[in-house]
């Protein structure tokens, strides 16, 4: 079985079957990690390019390790030291990579829709590694994998996302994935960080964190960025900590076996206390490990369509 699509732009476009296919495919890859030789020849001869327009360590590294464990040739491009600084536009950069026969291009961009622009203009497969405030589908998938791994199911679980929903692509991908898999999703944060019409996605909005935590099985804590305060979206970090920091006391409102997740990098002492981050409930490091397995699964499942002919591109759009 393969994914019948050229690109992975978001979880919005995936159906439940496709999500399940990816999660199932990740399992055997994860079992590789405990072996002394962690590598399989699945993508031998394929070229994978990491095209990162935003600084990133963990996502870029995770994709690089995933591709290498599949025996693909991996090239990393940081745009700060490439032709992009000479003014080359996104499409031309993509076409150059395609001319070098890149089978899969993994793109991280600060602007929403940039992977879609590349996908429309190139035959190479495009994987969205995070675009603006839009989506970060592999993060969403690895979060689903981690929940499934720990809770053995997703259907019917109560999952809470806390913090800056407005600027979070992770939140968006999580919401799409969780809803499609049958979870009940809540979001909590100050009203200025909750985007318009989020209820239309099927989530319940809370401003009071304690209220939101009641009875939840999973809590996913989002990173809060310092510059949001300068935008006047909340008055001070001090007040944010008062209202929204995940502490041991707060966590008692959730179910006793609650799972604590964070996409990283964490601001300890801001959105999450060290007590919670280091507690047995936290699966933050496992998320990182699972990320590699899930990205291997995505690379593998897309590789059938990768670097294909134009007609496949048309098939995707129809």
């Amino acid at each position: 079985m393969q994914l019948q699509r050229k690109d992975l732009l978001g979880i919005e476009q995936l159906d439940r079957k496709e999500i399940e296919l990816i999660l199932e495919a990740a399992r055997p890859f994860k079992s590789l990690f405990t072996r002394s030789i962690k590598k399989v020849p699945t993508l031998r001869g394929k070229t994978v390019v990491n095209l990162f327009y935003e600084p990133s360590t963990r996502t870029r590294l995770s994709f690089e390790i995933a591709a290498k464990r599949l025996s693909a040739d991996v090239v990393n491009i940081a745009t700060s030291s490439s032709s992009v600084v000479k003014g080359e536009n996104l499409i031309d950069t993509g076409k150059t990579l395609e001319a070098m026969k890149a089978d899969i291009i993994i793109i991280r961009h600060n602007l929403a829709g940039a992977p879609a622009v590349l996908g429309r203009n190139l035959h190479s497969s495009i994987i969205n590694a995070g675009d603006g405030f839009h989506e970060h589908p592999t993060q969403g998938l690895l979060d689903l994998y981690t929940i499934l791994d720990k809770k053995k199911k997703i259907e019917g679980l109560k999952v809470l996302l806390v913090g800056d929903i407005l600027h979070s692509r992770v939140a968006k991908s999580n919401i799409w994935g969780l809803i499609k898999m049958g979870a009940q999703v809540r979001v909590a944060g100050p009203p200025t960080l909750i985007p318009a019409g989020i209820e239309n996605m099927g989530v319940k909005v809370f401003y009071d964190l304690n209220e939101a935590l009641k009875g939840v099985d999973v809590v996913n804590i989002l990173r809060i960025q310092m510059e949001r305060q300068q935008d006047n979206l909340f008055p001070s970090m001090h007040e944010y900590i008062e209202l929204y920091q995940m502490t041991g006391d707060r966590l008692k409102y959730a179910k006793p076996d609650v799972l604590v997740m964070h996409p990283g990098p964490m601001n300890r002492g801001i959105e999450i206390s060290s007590e919670v981050a280091d507690s047995p409930a936290a699966v933050i490091n496992e998320q990182v490990t699972n990320g590699i397995a899930v990205r291997m699964a995505v690379l593998y499942l897309l590789s059938a369509k990768a670097g294909g002919e134009h007609k496949q591109k048309i098939a995707r759009n129809s």
Partner: peptide, 15 residues
């Protein structure tokens, strides 16, 4: 436009 669609697309909205 600011609304459900801008939220899904991750684009900044104009109310």
């Amino acid at each position: 436009n600011e609304g459900g669609v801008s939220t899904v697309l991750g684009l900044r909205g104009i109310p």
